[in-house]
Amino acid sequence: MFEARLLKSSILKKVLEAIKDLLTQATFDCDDNGIQLQAMDNSHVALVSLLLRADGFDKYRCDRNVTMGMNLGSMTKILKCAGDKDTVTMKAQDNADTVTFVFESPNQEKVSDYEMKLMNLDLEHLGIPETEYSCTIRMPSAEFARMCRDLSQFGESIVISCTKEGVKFSTSGDIGSANIKLAQTASIDKEDEAVIIEMDEPVTLTFACQYLNYFTKATSLSPQVQLSMSADVPLVVEYRIPDIGHIRYYLAPKIEE
């Protein structure tokens, strides 16, 4: 038996919003520790890794490991049926071929359940080693979203260059070029609004704008985003979801040939 209850369905709605442009289907792996999802996008240049810890749920029970292959389009349709203040419970029997979503309004006057067929997905899982990155940049997630949106008007790629002076985001295209420089926040009063740069070695890497824009669909999950970079390895864009877990996006850098 698997049962996971969240007081706010909005978290699950936002998680789905954050992955549905990249993935059409995904496997939710549930065990004692919580719910995990790892999947590559169709073109296999980006990877999404989601963790929702068991202790972040209002109620969590998982007697046996459960693997639920879900069509994210169908899941989106179902979650649209939940009010933002509704609680949501996901339930599945052991070895079941369906999952049930139960939505309850705050006053318990409306209870709805939606059963969805599960899919047998044969998806590749990649082993991502614990990595020490040369640069990590923390910044307000809304600022990162704004920059990606602004720069993607000019070019298809964004060059991210991190040095001890700060971090520079650049692009160029038919109409011209654009550069945005961010310096580390001088005095941190509000952590959510700070830009914090940790750099062991300077790094410059190029990434596809389109994917960075997909990642920023997670903005509403967290006030801050963390970018981790090392030479010649994928960028990690991490949104920490308060009290429950994180969503991480990995993106392979572009390479000049």
Partner: peptide
Amino acid sequence: VERQDLMKEFYPEL
């Protein structure tokens, strides 16, 4: 010409 590597070129398949 820019090329984009695949995830699998960086991380091993489990």
